[in-house]
Write a protein that binds this DNA or RNA. Structure first.
Lengths: 228, 228
DNA sequence: ATGTATATACTTGTCGACAAGTATACAAGA
DNA sequence: TCTTGTATACTTGTCGACAAGTATATACAT
């Protein structure tokens, strides 16, 4: 027997990891046949996914995986920059380094090994990247805020999984992490702020340009739910 | 005929405006009798409220309006400080004032008139307060981010409605707003950052101390859902 | 009086059936 | 050939009934 929570988590995973692509149709009937459960369960999961902005339900027509809203991605990147700049500021203001140097070094090392091989282990790199930023919040005493923002970061992860060309940029991103780490360890808040801003600006740029992108995966004009 | 969306909005309003107090029991049967609809609708609304952390459902025992998690309130205040500091920084960095002075002056004026009378019009003051902070994000080109964070700010508003003694502090808060406005208009990012930090710190302090507070409305030890 | 077992009245969880709306395939007529 | 109307096969929306678990009140035995 499968619980509604499990269905929700499974669908969430398949949407963020692009097993279901943006725009794909999801049928309640097909899914409840696949999970061997009643439609009620699937509908409950749909309701939650809809609430999170990952699914769009058109009554009597069908349900579709949400397209990616690049304006929203920019917003979330802006949010992360703001939160992490504040976290760094708090770290520098309030605490002594503690085990922060080792933790950041560990996360950076993990990023290097994950991206070093003949072909990069992208999931592992992304996990290490998340960990680098997570450490900053945790050491600022805001680990719970990181959990609170998980729902927003889901969109970020889905977009990241779609932007394959990120691969080329990984070495530069790691260098930026190292510079940020150095600034934090030198307790230079102004420098860290500038570096974080630059770091997220490169990401925001990736979210704004559309060089030969498959536009069927993105909303145009930042408007959602405009299916004719 | 009432739609599920309406039930959800009504319950949300009654929870944030404390018509239903933290800890109150909400019965599916009673509500679907009150709304003259099937339990399905109420359950759907419950599901969304649960997802937002405003309702806790204990299977076969009952559903209760979530208590207020002060650690979470602090986190959201930290979040707001971070976002608005970044917004101010962006405003100063990228744009000329435009109509910003008039907008901020208007919001501050509205706060004064709402809090001036023999007894303050708290709802009006809160709306003007939200507007002041909303203007900052809007002028930084992040109006959509403000909407994105609405869900988090719901918790903030519920807490604010419960903290009656805020009233005494309103004149000081308005003064802080004026100081922030001045720093922004003088394009002094560092000063604005310090003032915002101080502004939110006074709020965070209000969320941390518990002088003669009715503790039945708050989680102890920052743990949720520990009903025995 | 006190402890224990049982019945009862709640609670939320789950299901299958049917209602209602939409898009498509198809056939009939011009 | 093109247009138009109709039947059909989908889609999601809604409902009432029943299942299952919990807490409380009650009767009974000690």
């Amino acid at each position: 027997m499968i619980t509604g929570e499990e269905i929700y988590r499974d669908l969430l995973k398949k949407i963020t990891e692009l097993e279901y692509m943006p725009g794909d149709a999801l049928s309640e009937n097909e899914l409840c046949a696949a999970y061997k459960c009643s439609r009620h369960m699937v509908r409950d999961a749909f309701s939650r996914l809809k609430e999170k902005g990952l699914l769009e339900v058109y009554p009597h027509r069908g349900s579709y995986v949400s397209l990616i809203n690049l304006k929203q991605i920019e917003d979330i990147l802006f949010l992360r920059e703001a939160v992490e700049t504040a976290a760094v500021s708090a770290i520098i203001r309030e605490t002594d380094p503690g085990d922060l140097p080792e933790l950041l070094a560990g996360a950076i090392e993990e990023q290097k090994t994950a991206s070093a091989g003949a072909e990069a282990d992208l999931p592992a790199y992304f996990r290490a990247d998340d960990r680098f930023h997570g450490i900053l919040l945790e050491k600022a005493g805001r680990a719970s805020l990181y959990r609170l923002l998980e729902d927003e970061y889901i969109h970020l992860r889905r977009w990241r999984n779609l932007e394959i060309r990120t691969t080329r940029r990984i070495p530069a991103l790691i260098q930026e992490h190292e510079a940020i780490r150095d600034a934090v360890l030198h307790r230079d808040a102004a420098e860290a702020s500038v570096l974080l801003h630059r770091h997220f600006d490169t990401l925001k740029f990736a979210a704004s340009v559309d060089e030969g992108r498959d536009n069927s995966y993105f909303y145009k004009n930042q408007t959602e739910g405009e299916r004719k």
